[in-house]
Design a protein around this nucleic acid. Structure first.
Lengths: 208, 208
DNA sequence: CCAAGGATTTATCACTGATAAGGAGAAGGT
DNA sequence: ACCTTCTCCTTATCAGTGATAAATCCTTGG
């Protein structure tokens, strides 16, 4: 039994019982072991959760843009993949939001910045674009999963027809405030904003 | 001793010890009372936290735009105020992210949507604008406060000068990825995106 | 004066993350 | 072959958590 087998068992357990019920005892029981055994491999539970989060995020090495892929399509792919990863694990957003990024993330991050610089971004513009997208995705999926956990039905109460007419009209035309459609709309907003920033401050050439 | 005095004490305690150490026993001790007394006023701790979150968010009744205030300035004010509110309470973002919005929020939300519709938004556009801003703000402050909690110094290590040159250049020119400057940049991105969406799909007249 | 109810305490539960001390067992030197 | 050492796990235990049941205080109304 080593760190990776523990992480793998923790991932399975996370899907079954959720982050709140992911206790050291339950995890140990699943590994046919008593709970203090885990503390030989991990200093404390937070260290285990950090590694869990890193293990999940590790799949997010999308790599640089494909040949001929424009920044907009690449950032959109990146954003969708990140949301999918968070959604594919129970309490994924909450888990990742509570952990520190880890040092090797910086290298990946730098490569992504560089890819954008090659397409006309200044370093600051590239950084703002990616971090802003990151905040949006985290916040979006966090609320999405929180709402799903307390299986809250989308609003549409009959008594609210007169109290919140505009809201109901918006939901009728555009669907609930979570789900892929809402995510895509917010993503479009952000990408449009990034594009506008490029046109205003950017040379027509490449990195300034 | 009623609900509101408990909430007030809980707010003070939150600032002093943070969300993780906000236990029922500590809160009871501050009120000169034993912990089970709280369960007369609240069904469980989550209900207390929900009311705490609502009490904090209640200050966010910015109201409709001022006379002559354009939607962009209004949304910017609204976003900054929301961030300030989250920042003004320890673990504010984490607290709010984990709670359900509450029913009376819907009415405020509808008023805000209506204000945007009056300035040329469709209901769906208004909803997407506000919810996307909300996700961004939540995600941003969440990471901001998490980083502050484990007082993580902004990156800039000497050994990273060759591993992450673009990242360091971005930080040199634009400052760290949290703080007001970064928030304003992301906010501008979003507002620009909203503006672009209005120009593409909107009539030049008012609500469609 | 006493009954009723609101509000709090005492006692206790099941459970959590964590630590200390000790034991099984293979590795490896002599 | 023996003894030591190091790795990995168990047993026992701790302080602290949210929560519930039962008993108690105290004020209010009949």
């Amino acid at each position: 039994m080593n760190r990776t087998t523990i992480i793998r068992a923790a991932l399975e357990l996370l899907e079954e019982v959720g982050l709140d019920e992911l206790t050291t005892r339950r995890l140990a029981a699943r590994l046919q072991v008593k709970s203090p055994a885990l503390y030989w491999h991990f200093r404390n539970k937070q260290e285990l959760l950090d590694e869990l989060a890193r293990h999940i995020q590790a799949r997010q090495d999308l790599g640089p843009p494909r040949e001929g892929e424009k920044w907009r399509d690449w950032l959109a792919r990146r954003a969708r993949e990140r949301r999918d990863i968070l959604l594919s694990h129970r309490d994924g957003a909450r888990l990742i939001a509570g952990t520190s990024p880890g040092h090797d993330i910086a290298a990946t991050f730098d490569r992504e910045l560089h890819a954008l610089v090659l397409q006309g971004f200044s370093p600051v513009q590239a950084m703002r674009a990616i971090t802003t997208l990151g905040s949006y995705i985290t916040g979006f999926v966090l609320e999405e999963q929180a709402r799903h956990q307390r299986d809250e039905p989308p609003p549409g109460g009959l008594d609210q027809a007169r109290e919140t007419p505009t809201l109901l009209a918006a939901i009728r035309d555009g669907g609930p405030p979570d789900g892929s459609a809402a995510f895509e709309d917010g993503l479009t907003l952000l990408l449009d904003g990034i594009e506008a920033g490029l046109r205003n401050h950017g040379d027509t050439s490449s990195a300034r």
